[in-house]
């Protein structure tokens, strides 16, 4: 928020158009940079830091070394490929600007609400009645004034809005972000307090408390609608990342099922179990980070089916639970 509250800005990681995965219909998903958790399976490690970051894509590099002299703080070196000294790099982007091959790119650019709005509206024609815009992260609620202002602007144009959140933020941030959201995609990842902290670095209690907050926002939106029929109604989906050796446990899924049953008040419309994949391993390499799941295999479809079954056995509505994502074919 550099320009004050009238036109808040946010650090935007990426805008993905024609997304089929972040809510109903065709959507444009905007990923904001900066996250309050650091999940060990994170698919978008570049979204965790709240600062711009430079990445180097080796197979594009020509080896011309133009970047070395472009860097004002000498953060780059070239031995076997380009190394970014992250302690020096300010994310200014001079190297990326200079690189003729787009081998250096900056993750994160600042956009105002108006700039973001203009970009997101480009696909208005494809949203139809159920598609729209999803704000994801990182953790979008950390930039709550931007989220609220952008959603307000989009809602005025009749665009469906969805917020993807893990709930690890202040209650005020959460409520501000949800105010103009038509759909909340809420992450429940782990039902054991200790494991939750170990896997994500955050508190389960906070996440569950905020789940209740969201449920109550959804409930009141529906009550309001009975009085003011033109009021928009909020919907709630839950998403659970299913990670081999971590969250892919029967007891975890059943634990989350119980959280949904106990606190969801029947207001959750969909619960999606998202199967792990390791396609993001290159991102870790480009960030110069090691990743413990680099070699982890895809889950077999049968295991995903079994977890859905476990959820149903714990009382979840069978029509509610789905799984998505890539799986391994056991025969291979």
């Amino acid at each position: 928020m550099e320009k004050g509250s009238t036109d808040p800005s946010a650090l935007v990681l990426e805008i993905m158009r024609m997304s089929t995965e972040d809510g109903p219909g065709l959507r444009t998903t905007m990923f904001l940079k900066g996250c309050s958790l650091s999940c060990r399976w994170c698919q978008n490690p570049e979204s965790i830091s709240a600062k711009p970051e430079v990445r180097w894509i080796g197979n594009r590099c020509l080896g011309c070394r133009e970047c070395l002299s472009a860097c004002p703080v000498s953060a780059l070196s070239c031995e076997e490929g380009i190394t970014v000294r992250r302690n020096l790099c300010t994310g200014c982007g001079s190297c990326a600007e200079e690189c003729p091959a787009s081998a250096l790119e900056v993750w994160g650019r600042r956009m105002t609400v108006e700039e973001a709005f203009k970009e997101l509206m480009k696909d208005r024609a494809y949203f139809g009645t159920d598609g729209g815009v999803t704000l994801s992260g990182g953790e979008a609620t950390l930039q709550a004034p931007f989220v609220k202002a952008l959603f307000t602007r989009l809602a005025k144009e009749g665009v469906h809005t969805a917020l993807d959140t893990c709930g690890a933020c202040s209650t005020e941030q959460l409520e501000t972000s949800c105010e103009q959201a038509d759909l909340i995609l809420y992450d429940l990842k782990e039902s054991d307090e200790d494991l939750h902290r170990r896997y994500t670095g955050g508190s389960l209690k906070l996440v569950v408390d905020h789940f209740k907050t969201v449920v109550s926002l959804v409930r009141s939106s529906r009550l309001h609608r009975q009085v003011w029929p033109d009021q928009r109604e909020k919907r709630l989906w839950v998403r659970t990342p299913v990670i081999p050796g971590m969250t892919a446990r029967r007891d975890n899924i059943q634990g989350i099922a119980r959280i949904i049953l106990e606190h969801g008040e029947g207001l959750v419309d969909r619960w999606e179990l998202c199967a792990f994949n390791n396609l993001c391993r290159d991102k870790y390499r480009r960030l110069g980070k090691a990743w413990e799941l680099e070699e982890a295999d895809l889950l077999p479809a049968e295991e995903m089916d079994a977890l859905v079954q476990a959820a149903v056995e714990a009382g979840a509505d069978a029509d509610l639970v789905h799984w998505s994502g890539m799986t391994r074919n056991i025969k291979e």
Binding site: T20, Y126, G131
Partner: peptide, 18 residues
Amino acid sequence: KPGNREKFKAFLRGYAEN
């Protein structure tokens, strides 16, 4: 992918517009 057909229809309707 099941469920994506509606999404592809949305693409075609958008194509008619844009």
